[in-house]
Design a protein around this nucleic acid. Sequence first.
DNA 1: CGAGTGATTGACTTAGATCAATGACCGTGG
DNA 2: CCACGGTCATTGATCTAAGTCAATCACTCG
Lengths: 200, 200
Amino acid sequence: MKVWLPPAGSSATERKLAAGQVLFSRGDRAAGLYEVVSGKVRRTRVDSGGRELVLGIASAGDTLAEASLFSPIHHCTAVAVATTVVRFYQKAALLAEFARNPQAAQSFAELLAHQVLELRARLELRNIYSARDRVRHYLAAGAEGGTVVLPGSVKDLAGELGLTHEALYRTLSEMEGAGEIARRKGTIRLARALYDRVHI
Amino acid sequence: MKVWLPPAGSSATERKLAAGQVLFSRGDRAAGLYEVVSGKVRRTRVDSGGRELVLGIASAGDTLAEASLFSPIHHCTAVAVATTVVRFYQKAALLAEFARNPQAAQSFAELLAHQVLELRARLELRNIYSARDRVRHYLAAGAEGGTVVLPGSVKDLAGELGLTHEALYRTLSEMEGAGEIARRKGTIRLARALYDRVHI
DNA sequence: CGAGTGATTGACTTAGATCAATGACCGTGG
DNA sequence: CCACGGTCATTGATCTAAGTCAATCACTCG
C-alpha cells in the first residue's frame, strides 16, 4: 500500500491544522495531494441549493485530493474536524516520480481503482430507498467481527448515508428496539441474526 | 485521450453483442477491460434487497471494468442495451504496457481520476432531496449549449437519478409545464432562464 | 399482427423531511 | 472553577413529496 508515495522527506511537507480549519476549498488551485498523518479531515461539497454533502471523513493513512492531481482545481472542500496533521506532496514531484517509476504509477492507479469501487458501492447504497435497509447495508459493509466503529459523529454518518440526522437517530432507535443492533459510545454491535443474514 | 491503450490489434479482440446479451456479471472473473466500439452497454448492480441500480450507460469510446483491472472479479453486471461491439484488452497485456510505458500508466490513472470526480458528482446529486432540483442539477451538468441528449431511455435516466420512472415523468411534465424545459425525442432543451441560473 | 416494453397519467399511502424543543457534554474565558 | 455558548444527541408533531399500485396508449420487433 502507498508504494507510489515518494520517499519521505523528499518533497513532502507537513502541516498542522486546528479543528475547524480549512485545508482547501472547492475551486482552489490544486497544488498536490495530502496524506492524513493524524486526526480527521472532512471532505464536503456544497450543492447549488446550499445543502452540504459529506463526501467522507479521511483518517490517518488516507489521502486527499488524489483526483485533483490531474485537475487544475479542487472539487471539494476539506476541513479538519479535529487537530490534524497532514503531509503534502507536490504535484510535480509526484508526476515526476510516476514517470520514473512505473510501479509507483501503477500503484497509484490501483489506489484510484479502489476508490472507484468504493464510490460505486456508496452510490449503490443511496439507491436503497428505505432508511432502515440503508443503515443495514452500511453496517453490514463496515462490520468487522460484528462490530462497526463509527468514523465520526452520528450526524456525519447521517450525511454520508444521505439521511437527515433525525431520521438516522430514529432508525437506530428502532433497530435497537427491535434487537437488531446494540449501541455503545462510538460503536454499533450487530445482532448475530443481522450479521449472519448479510454475510452468507 | 486513451493514450494508454495498447496499439490496436496487439492483444485486443472484438466481440459483438446482441441487445440484452450479458457481457459480464457481478462476481465473474475479471479478465481485462472493454472498450465500447459501437452500441450501448448498461452497467448495473443489484443490491441485497433485489433493487437494481443503473451505474451508467457506456457508449462508443467509453471503457468498462477499468477498476476490475486490479480486482479479481467484476463488481457490476454489464448488459448490452442494443447491438453492440466491444473491444477486449487482456489484463496482463495492459499491465505489461503500463510497466513498459509510464506515460500509458499515468494516462490510465488520469482516466480513473476523472471517474472518481464523476462519481463524486453523482453522489452529490443523490444528496439533493427534491426530485425537481435533482433533475435540474442533472440537466445543468449535462447541458451543452442549452441542450441535453439523453443517454438512454427515460426509464434508465430515472435509475441513474435514483428516482422511480413515474416520479421522473411527472417531474419532467411539471418542468415542461412551468416552461423550464422543452422536450424533444431523446433530448431536452433548457429554457434560457434555467440554463443561465446554473451557469453563472 | 401479437407480445413485450417504454411512456404517461391517476389515486393513494407512507416514509422521511422539516420544524421545534430539550438535555447532555465540552471547551473556554472571565 | 464555573457559568456560558456551542454542538451533538434525542425525541415529538406535522406535512409533503415521492414511492407504490394500477391502468392506458404508443411503439417496435420478430
